[in-house]
Design a binder for these strands. Structure first.
Lengths: 223, 223
DNA sequence: TGACTTTAGTCGCAGATGGTGACTAATTCG
DNA sequence: CGAATTAGTCACCATCTGCGACTAAAGTCA
């Protein structure tokens, strides 16, 4: 067992890998290194010369075998809360992963946010912060798009926004707002999903071609 | 001179203290500890047992003799950029200070953001991140109010928003949006400022009494 | 004193945006 | 074929926004 004080001044990088699974958000956990009975976020000690982003990317790669479609730091966590590493501070990242293409390595498991196993207090704080950060950036950054595959139907996109916002949206208003924000462009493909009319596939329209004025705000709710 | 590798794994806490001075944002700098010719943000090594927020608060107190009216972490910075401490990582905070009541301790000087002296690359990144964070939280958190004294005129508030947004706002629209957001309440005081009609003083209305629906969005611009 | 300037604060129109239900379209199922 | 299901659009109307023009209360200066 490590001596607690030996880690004073050192720190870890932790990654909250988020995906949308069966209509709810889920994060990727693995067995804790120190206590095999407990679950933990993927984390690492930093090595001299590696930037924080690099360490986070390695963490994600070890868990998934690929890079998240979006990876962003959400801050440093400490404040006396316990962490498997016994360091005083950890720097947390959020990584977004489209669920369709993700296949975690052995030993890693998706857990729905609503039903997480016990985590160290510091990692629990990170998981909560991750969803807060995602919600707050929803209208500034392509959060919803990074949780979807490269092409998607507008209904899928709407469901993703409903999931992230935690409320229902009205179809016509959603599409109108989407249009005026120039966020997507149609492909020439259509997808027939069992019953019902086939849906056209769209892709995220990168900033280059876009003439965006106001940030998008999907505010409109349903009865 | 310290050996660079001796600090590997350790880190500092740095504070970007921001105020609004003569219609532009300014930050508080001091002479660097290692090189008296250079300027630096206030920073400290952490001590075992102190939370990050506590260290940041101490930093601010040492510079100002008082607490900022708002103090929030903006992230961990490293990525190989140099810092006076020779650590690999620093955790940065923004602190907001109303300029009217602030009187920095000896050795600390306000510098306008538009005309900063040379800083270490890591601290320059922090200063830039600070203004980005302030802008992005402008409609979620009382950023503008924390840069103003406890009571203020609506014209002063509008000027503060114009400064933070970097664009002019239309008076009538600004006040209408302010009303519908229930952000301020009038006091029974008025201030006569030289020529022109005296202005009523307002104060920030804390969340308790507020029934806020949508986030405020002062989007409307001037010709 | 009274015209002029300066700053505060309000009104109300016209056009843009948003919430909504009802509509049409294309497919599967039985 | 008709019912069910999902996609996509339309049009009405209420609300919100941009904006110019207005009123109000002070100082300045001849």
């Amino acid at each position: 067992m490590r001596d607690r004080s030996s880690r004073t001044g050192s720190f870890t990088v932790d990654v909250v890998l988020v995906t949308a699974m069966r209509n709810e958000l889920a994060i990727l956990l693995t067995r804790s290194g120190s206590d095999r009975e407990r679950w933990s976020l993927p984390w690492r000690f930093t090595q001299a010369g590696d930037s924080l982003d690099t360490v986070a990317a390695k963490c994600a790669d070890e868990a998934l075998g690929e890079q998240p479609s979006w990876l962003e730091q959400i801050g440093a966590f400490g404040d006396g809360r316990r962490h498997p590493s016994d360091t005083e501070v950890s720097v947390a990242f959020v990584g977004l992963v489209p669920h369709e293409t993700a296949s975690p390595h052995a030993g890693y498991t998706w857990f729905p946010m609503s039903d997480l196993p016990p985590l160290s207090p510091r990692q629990r704080a990170m998981a909560e912060a991750a969803t807060r950060v995602m919600q707050s950036r929803l209208d500034q950054a392509p959060i919803a798009f990074r949780l979807l595959p490269a092409t998607f139907t507008l209904s899928e996109l709407q469901q993703m926004y409903e999931l992230l916002l935690g409320k229902r949206l009205h179809k016509a208003s959603f599409r109108r707002a989407l249009q005026s924000a120039w966020l997507v462009e149609p492909t020439d493909e259509w997808r027939s999903e069992g019953r019902g009319r086939p849906a056209q596939l769209f892709r995220y329209l990168p900033k280059k071609k876009r003439r965006l004025h106001r940030g998008v705000r999907f505010d409109f709710l349903y009865p």
